[in-house]
Each structure stands twice: as structure tokens, then as C-alpha cells.
């Protein structure tokens, strides 16, 4: 009984809290007033059109960019005042899964393991584990620049998982993967999301249904939707039967779907 209570308390823990996030580049706002709260056990899908501020938001919560305004805490550590300690708690797959082109997968992962504070033997064990976890055995001695897009993405994922972080931020983790690889990575993310806080950005709405417990849509730097995938889908008018999520997405980010929907409803009442 006590165990159950403890588990649910753990699961409810907010691992990523960002409030009033704002980022201004010159005169233009990339992000204006976003709040993010992600608990352990949640996989949050971060959606929005290109240029909506997804990557900028992710870059702020991972400590790459400093917000113009707002507060960020990771596992209870203030990222802005204690950046190094806070960065230890997260794993981050940046957009495009960058890595050093001339290094082999193994060398690159060893570098990340060392950067994460593991010494020789521990580093080797860690590297072995993530190589196995994302199936990189076949390419471990190949240099990064010669890898296919799918393997590059997986190397990036392996790097993010190195220290078994409680918070995972993944910027388009399945971009460029074939359907089999997508399935594999989604299964992995679902698995990881059981006791961690995972934030992933994507353009593929079916992915949100497949792996996310919650979805946030941002448009022009502000949150326009926050809820479960089911809630998101239910926002679509009843007469839409196919690609309902896409419809909601367009409705919320362009207003286009909304106009069409209202026109149709009017037509049907007449």
C-alpha cells in the first residue's frame, strides 16, 4: 500500500517546469509567454507549424538559449542560476541530430559519456548499453558522416540516453526514419516515458496518437492547445471523418479549418 502511494507521488512529480517563457530576437518574439509543466510518466507532444517557436522553446529549456523572460526548473533545479547541475538531469536530441562528422559512433558516444562525468570503465559500460538500446552495433566503428539518416538520428538518441536522464527533450526524433525505424523509436520513447518526463516535437500527428499522453500546440509563440490527444481529436467537427487531428491542427494554427467547418455546419443546418 505504502509502495503504491510512493509510486504515484513519484509519478506526479513535476520534472520540467517552465513559466512565462519568452524569447525575443531583436524586435520579433519567437516565443511569448509559454508555460510548460511535464510530470514523470508523461510524454508531451510539442506541435506547431514551422517557425512557431518549438525549437526555440526546446533550446531554452535545455539551456542552449537564455530566455528573455521566464523561469525554468529541471528536477527542481533552477536552470538559469545553476546551469551545469540542471543540465546534468536532461538528455537532449537537438534538431537534426548533430554530431562530429569525423568521429566514429563509438568515439562520439564515449566523448559524451566522459562529458557526462563517467570515467573510463563506467564510460565504456554506458556506451555499450546505449549502443544496444538503440541498436547501433552494426555501425559502431563507422564515422558519423557516412551514416544514413536513420542511424544518425539513432546516434543522437543514444547520446541523449547516455546518463539515463529523468528529463528527455527530443527535437523531431523520428524525422528521416523509415516506417520500421519509426515504430522502433516510438516503442522506445513510450517505454522511456513510463518513469520520465519526455518532451518531443514532431510534425507527424499520428505520432502524437501513438506515443504521447499529452499534446501542446503552439502557434506564433503562444500555446493554442494543451490537452490529451483524444481531447485534441474531439475538437474536430463531427462531419470530419478522416485525418481529424490534422484538421484540428490546421484549425488552431491557421484558422482555415475553422472557417471551413463553420461554413459546413451552416450548410447542414439549412
Amino acid at each position: 500500500m505504502a509502495k503504491v502511494v510512493e509510486n504515484s507521488a513519484r509519478a506526479a512529480e513535476e520534472l520540467l517546469v517552465a513559466t512565462g517563457l519568452e524569447k525575443r530576437f531583436g524586435d520579433t518574439y519567437a516565443v511569448r509567454g509559454i508555460d510548460l509543466r511535464v510530470r514523470a510518466g508523461e510524454v508531451l507532444g510539442f506541435l506547431g507549424p514551422n517557425g512557431a517557436g518549438k525549437s526555440t522553446s526546446m533550446r531554452m529549456v535545455t539551456g542552449f538559449l537564455e530566455p528573455t523572460a521566464g523561469a525554468i526548473s529541471l528536477c527542481g533545479i533552477n536552470l538559469l542560476t545553476h546551469p551545469i547541475e540542471a543540465k546534468r538531469t536532461i538528455g537532449y536530441l537537438p534538431e537534426g541530430a548533430p554530431a562530429y562528422p569525423e568521429m566514429t559512433v563509438e568515439e562520439f558516444l564515449t566523448f559524451v559519456a566522459e562529458a557526462r562525468g563517467y570515467a573510463r570503465r563506467d564510460a565504456r559500460d554506458r556506451v555499450e548499453r546505449v549502443i544496444e538500446r538503440v541498436h547501433l552495433q552494426g555501425v559502431r566503428r563507422k564515422s558519423f558522416e557516412t551514416l544514413s539518416k536513420g542511424y544518425k538520428r539513432r546516434t543522437g538518441l543514444a547520446q541523449a540516453l547516455m546518463h539515463d536522464p529523468r528529463v528527455l527533450i527530443l527535437d523531431e526524433p523520428t524525422d528521416g526514419l523509415d516506417p520500421n525505424q519509426k515504430h522502433e523509436v516510438r516503442t522506445l520513447i513510450r517505454e522511456l516515458g513510463r518513469d520520465r518526463a519526455v518532451v518531443l516535437s514532431t510534425h507527424i500527428l499520428e505520432e502524437v496518437e501513438a506515443v504521447c499522453t499529452r499534446a501542446i500546440i503552439i502557434n506564433q509563440g503562444t500555446v493554442v492547445f494543451d490537452g490529451t490527444p483524444t481531447e485534441m481529436e474531439s475538437k474536430a467537427p463531427a462531419n470530419i471523418t478522416k485525418n481529424r487531428m490534422d484538421h484540428v491542427f490546421r484549425m488552431l494554427t491557421t484558422g482555415e479549418g475553422e472557417r471551413r467547418a463553420t461554413r459546413r455546419t451552416k450548410g447542414s443546418t439549412r
Binding site: R59, T62, G63, F64, I84, E85, K87, R88, I90, Y92, P94, E95, G96, P98, A99, Y100, P101, V112, A115, R116, G117, Q159
Partner: peptide, 14 residues
Amino acid sequence: RTGTIELLVTLPFA
């Protein structure tokens, strides 16, 4: 150019 700066800065380095 390669985008690795993002990785480097988000690793726990000063």
C-alpha cells in the same frame, strides 16, 4: 555549421 555547438553547450560544461 554542423550544429554540434548546441550539443556542446547543453552538455554539463562551463
